[in-house]
Design a protein around this nucleic acid. Sequence first.
DNA 1: AATGAATGAGGCTTCATTCAT
DNA 2: CATGAATGAAGCCTCATTCAT
Lengths: 194, 194, 194, 194
Amino acid sequence: MKKNKPKYKLIIDAAVEVIAENGYHASQVSKIAKKAGVADGTIYLYFKNKEDILVSVFEEKMGQFIEQIVSATSEKEDANKKLLTLIEMHFRQLAEDHYLAIVTQLELRQSNIDLRLQINNVLKPYLVVIDEIIKEGIEQKLFRDDLNRKLVRQMIFGTLDETVTNWVMKDEKYDLVSLAPSVHALITNGLSVK
Amino acid sequence: MKKNKPKYKLIIDAAVEVIAENGYHASQVSKIAKKAGVADGTIYLYFKNKEDILVSVFEEKMGQFIEQIVSATSEKEDANKKLLTLIEMHFRQLAEDHYLAIVTQLELRQSNIDLRLQINNVLKPYLVVIDEIIKEGIEQKLFRDDLNRKLVRQMIFGTLDETVTNWVMKDEKYDLVSLAPSVHALITNGLSVK
Amino acid sequence: MKKNKPKYKLIIDAAVEVIAENGYHASQVSKIAKKAGVADGTIYLYFKNKEDILVSVFEEKMGQFIEQIVSATSEKEDANKKLLTLIEMHFRQLAEDHYLAIVTQLELRQSNIDLRLQINNVLKPYLVVIDEIIKEGIEQKLFRDDLNRKLVRQMIFGTLDETVTNWVMKDEKYDLVSLAPSVHALITNGLSVK
Amino acid sequence: MKKNKPKYKLIIDAAVEVIAENGYHASQVSKIAKKAGVADGTIYLYFKNKEDILVSVFEEKMGQFIEQIVSATSEKEDANKKLLTLIEMHFRQLAEDHYLAIVTQLELRQSNIDLRLQINNVLKPYLVVIDEIIKEGIEQKLFRDDLNRKLVRQMIFGTLDETVTNWVMKDEKYDLVSLAPSVHALITNGLSVK
DNA sequence: AATGAATGAGGCTTCATTCAT
DNA sequence: CATGAATGAAGCCTCATTCAT
């Protein structure tokens, strides 16, 4: 399996750095190869083409990202705590990996639609995690049972994504993780005075 | 002022169609010129460069978009009704203009970061509108007064944007506008059982 | 029509020279552009791709080649004289255009099969000319009427082609045109003592 | 001597198949190695470079080809019968080996001129055989004694080669070997009514 | 003001060959 | 002898922009 070969990870990590530093469109294969310390041709022993590098970057990094969240949320008992944990982990992981934040929030969105559809596939497991928390919350009678669950998921993901993108675009000047409780409160309690 | 010359609008409209039909990366200047019925060189009498076309597209279309929303919300009395109207108008305008929906939700996001920063500037007035509704809601004691307003704005915009993008990516197969009340309820009342 | 534009001919002629001087595989598009005195990109205003240049080279040059032969043979009365004229013209035209001889006999044969099939299409009118001379010769009772005409055509073309190729490969050291009567005699009278 | 080692022949045969199946330009060394069941590097223990494989292919196959013809013609008594036998054997061997026919008539001609000059060297013994038959025919007073023998050889080889190439390009749809007597008659008796 | 022919920089990918094991 | 992972040079083509008319 190619993913276990040492150069595979080398190239993936180089790609993240190069994309974060140069931007998506200025990320030539030759730049990635140089940063990874391999020949240009070597890239093509591990990846079908340039797009395959990018999809793989997302798969690898997003895979770990989601795994961390799944693992952390599964330890919590109720849906409310799970949701808070999900938000915290979402923010924390991106706050801790500057390159990853830039790549996922800004650069990979410049890819063409085909690639974006593939990226969406990678994201699906994350959306499933959110779905399950919503379902659990309803079962536990913590969340209202008249909810359009798909809409709820879109609200949660849209809110987190927009929050992180704003933070990245503001050069990460404030503490993202500390926003988690407020975001959680907003999502669960809404705007209205009770 | 160039914007009043007849070919300016011709080119802008051609650009929207070309981008919607071909996708951002397959939208060459020559294609836009052809669709507009002008020579390639003529484009450069009205626009500094290709990026300027795209920014202008966004400015023109987004300007109208926001104007409609401002006008519609100003007629409503309280912040709750204003927010519902904003959501409805946001959804309706994109639902009614297929090309605009594709261009704003999918294609223009493939532009490079510089362009995206300019697009963000164009978006600012819309964010201000949201801000003002929030402020008004707090003053009218409809919304809680312990809110991080910037966060609220990100939640609102992130939720709407994610909802529309999902709808576009699902080929606009369901009725977007009819989702407005549910989205409004979610945002104002949150997930939790009261 | 592109063929009437001055740069079209310029590029075709440059291509013949470049191919003759450098060989088929070392004939980069950029070399042809340089020799033609145009930018690389200009080539693509007149030709679809590199292969299109090569097919066009063959079409243009072979078109003239065949036209000359048709015109010269049509003035002759009987099939024997027509055949002699065809052989002479075939030899003379290649003997007079060193570049053309190299390109048709040696370089274009290195092209891939798709291109060769297209080249064969261009050659068809020439084969038709040969066919008609054979037919006429039979009608005039100059040639035997028990001939497999396709085979005769292959013999004639194969003999001429092999003769020219040998001459080119021997660096055109002897007079090709003066061989015409002998070749004609061979073809019409065969090897055998009568 | 390397030629006696088992892998030498293995590689030669693999090369013929790969070239016949994929075409000259799509015949990578790695494909030949795979078909031969050896590592890429092993090829270079037996051959200097890729061109050396191709020359060797031609040497080996053409060597057998010529040997068969020499052996068969030497049993015949007069030059006429020898020539007929040569034509029959030429056709038969290619008709019986589909791969060889494609490789010699179509694919190897795409090689560059250096390689083609080497291939011509390999062909020389065949041309010598033809020369000797012509000479014998003249001595036996079967053929005219005013012949330009080099020209005759070119006619014979050109005719056979063109006939076979046409047959290969027509997907070998008709019986090549049965054409031998007609070709022989054409060459010996010519076109003219006696 | 309008044209559109011409420009030319720039990057992904292939594949013959090498060499450490 | 044999392997096969790694190398890295090399070229076709696109398309935003210009400028002579």
